[in-house]
Design a protein around this nucleic acid. Structure first.
Lengths: 213, 213
DNA sequence: TAGATTGTTAATCGATTAACAATC
DNA sequence: TAGATTGTTAATCGATTAACAATC
């Protein structure tokens, strides 16, 4: 299943499809048509069919889509059928918040360790995952195969820490620091820039105030 | 300054421009051309000029853009010249993380209160902002003018809480619950769906593994 | 079979890039 | 003035929507 040249716009929508299908599944909905799903999600049915057909024909004419099957298949496309190991760098509030999301584990992201520089946190555990000191990182990653690192540290330390992680074999960085990381080929990243998100909210709010339609 | 019909794609890029210009400003860079900025940001110069000209001509032929001026102007477009009051609903790790970001205050988002249902947190303060109980919400919002609410509560309680907030006059919801809120006209929202972000990272990682180019 | 709905091609729409005249 | 770089129009590219034949 090698899907090449899928547009970023499509990829960005997949997790949302996955979420809606998961909810349908919880509500014991067995089948759904692109039309019905499009109404729930406020997108066009055409877009749903077009998006899905990038990856294969998951539906059946005259019937629609089997919810459970489609959910599983989108999961596979997103790599949720695999288990990935993850560490969190930075055990502040945000790092601890991530560590407490048991939902990630259910999607195949297994938390292996949390690292921080603050000696007060040494030995503390969050949901059975121990907080270690940053100087233990090299040893830990030599002993444990880890693919993903969540970076929840200050901006000033982010680039050098990212480099250090890449050197130790980390292949994916989930970056919460408000900066763009410059990573070598073969290492992927995804940014969560909260302050940019808040600014977009601010823009929308300001626009509504000025021109409430 | 009523900018109508600006495309969402442009809006999404504005905070990133703002961030880069802020960094240039910190480094005492006085002027920058679209070409130079485009190289730093890995976008086309054409796109930068096109984006900015949606809002007005901020540059000068033969010179480029004055960094400080452009930074200020984009700030105004995003509404960062105004002060907005914010509350946080949900004082878990994520809510506390947001409460600790002093950076938001500097952008004009003033934290007025934090609310939770857990009585253990009653009276606790985070950076001088008190945690109150959810049943105090009505009274608090009658006494205080608040525009923005950050929702860091479980998905199951998000829709009803959003409705409650809207009824109390909240105009913007920064939603961290993994669900889409259905809000009335005039109320805006911005989603931060961490698990969707992680799934996109997973997709990229999986793709790289299968086809490392 | 008839009805429904997909998969897919073609048409439209919008966003990005290129080009260049205007002008500092 | 000459050089640089914007603001803006025109060209290209890509993404979305519409339409419909295929088929369950």
């Amino acid at each position: 299943m090698s899907e090449k040249g899928i547009s970023l716009a499509v990829i960005k929508r997949l997790p949302r499809y996955y979420r809606y299908l998961g909810e349908l599944l919880e509500n014991d909905v067995v089948r759904i048509s692109s039309k019905e799903l499009s109404e729930r999600m406020h997108v066009t049915a055409s877009q749903i069919r077009q998006d899905l057909n990038n990856f294969g024909g998951f539906g059946q004419q005259g019937y629609g889509y089997n919810v459970e099957y489609l959910h599983t298949e989108i999961g596979k496309i997103l790599g949720l059928d695999k288990k990935y190991s993850m560490i969190i760098i930075g055990a502040g509030n945000l790092g601890q918040a991530l560590a407490n999301y048991s939902d990630f584990e259910r999607k195949g992201f297994v938390l292996k360790g949390i690292f921080d520089v603050n000696p007060v946190l040494k030995g503390v555990s969050i949901r059975d995952t121990p907080i270690m000191m940053m100087d233990e990182l090299e040893e830990f990653l030599k002993k444990n195969s880890v693919q993903i690192a969540a970076l929840t540290i200050p901006k000033s330390k982010a680039p050098q820490t990212a480099q250090r992680l890449v050197k130790l074999g980390i292949k994916a960085i989930w970056n919460f620091a408000p900066t763009d990381l410059h990573l070598p080929e073969g290492v992927v990243s995804e940014n969560v820039h909260l302050s940019e998100s808040l600014m977009r909210l601010s823009y929308s709010l300001k626009s509504k105030e000025e021109d409430p339609e």
